[in-house]
Computed example of a mutant assay.
Amino acid sequence: MAANPWFSWTYVVENADTLWEHTVQHAVLTVEAVAIATVIAVPLGILVSRIRWLAGIVIGTAAVLYTVPSLALFAILAPLLGIGRTPVLIGLVAYALLVILRNTVAGLDAVDPAVLDAARGLGYGPGRVLVHVSLPNALPSVVAGLRLATVSTVAMVTVGVVVGYGGLGQLMFQGFRNNFYRAEIMAATLACVLLAVVLDVAIWAGGRALTPWRERRRA
């Protein structure tokens, strides 16, 4: 047990550079995947909220992608896109789409019709209503979707190790191959959890900063 502890601070200190390198790789891949998914999902959510008959097609397609097992999806993408970063990034975007899309649609649908009518009564056109009324009111729901998508993506990145680009998953897999070296596995796992918490808090804080009126309303 002493030779193979569940956690070793000595391992962390001696391998700090490696841990940091894989953590940065993990974080960059997560942020990039969620950002791309957001750029795709939010406009799709707006489109679906305007053209309701598209909801089944768009959300259904995103749901089908979400149900594909990650190992299978990466295995399918690897022969098409090669080994490395690209198939992992595309797979992560596919998984993040559904959560952000659903929350965007839910947030837009929850906007009080009376508020929309009041904006139109003030002479707001459709574009202005969307930008100044609908999206600000839907923002808390969108932020909640971003938080959930980000945390799940942090976990999903580790599976990318099957195609050679898994961030902290590389260290976890290396620990399993290295005679089940628990200190390496645990250090990578804790770094993954800490990264998820940091990103979640950052998005939460950003959401609060973008919706100051909610805090004033509570006060």
Results as ranks from 00 to 15, higher is better:
P136S: 01
R50S: 04
V133Y: 01
L122K: 12
A114T: 13
L146V: 01
N103R: 04
L116S: 14
L71Y: 13
A138L: 11
V111Y: 00
A149S: 06
V93F: 04
G121W: 08
G121K: 05
L71D: 13
L97V: 05
V93I: 15
I57D: 14
L171C: 06
G127L: 14
L44A: 09
P126I: 14
G169S: 08
A118D: 02
G84I: 01
V111M: 00
G121A: 11
A63W: 15
V115K: 04
P136G: 06
V64C: 14
I76V: 15
L65F: 15
V99T: 14
L77M: 10
W53P: 02
L44W: 03
I59K: 05
G125P: 06
L47E: 01
Y66Q: 13
V68Y: 10
Y95P: 11
G91T: 07
S152G: 06
L77D: 11
A119V: 15
S152I: 09
P43G: 11
G166K: 02
M156D: 12
A155N: 03
A62M: 04
M156V: 11
T67N: 00
V99G: 06
V111R: 00
V154S: 03
G125Y: 02
T153V: 15
I57Q: 13
V159S: 03
N137M: 13
I57W: 10
T67K: 03
I51F: 15
V93C: 14
Y124C: 07
V154N: 05
I46K: 00
L101R: 06
A78G: 04
S70V: 15
T67L: 01
P43D: 09
G169Q: 07
I51D: 09
L148K: 03
G56H: 11
I46Y: 00
S70N: 15
V68H: 09
A78E: 11
G166I: 12
A94N: 00
V154D: 01
L135K: 01
V99W: 07
P69A: 08
P69M: 11
A55T: 13
L77S: 05
T158Q: 03
V157L: 11
G167C: 09
F173T: 10
V111K: 01
V58W: 13
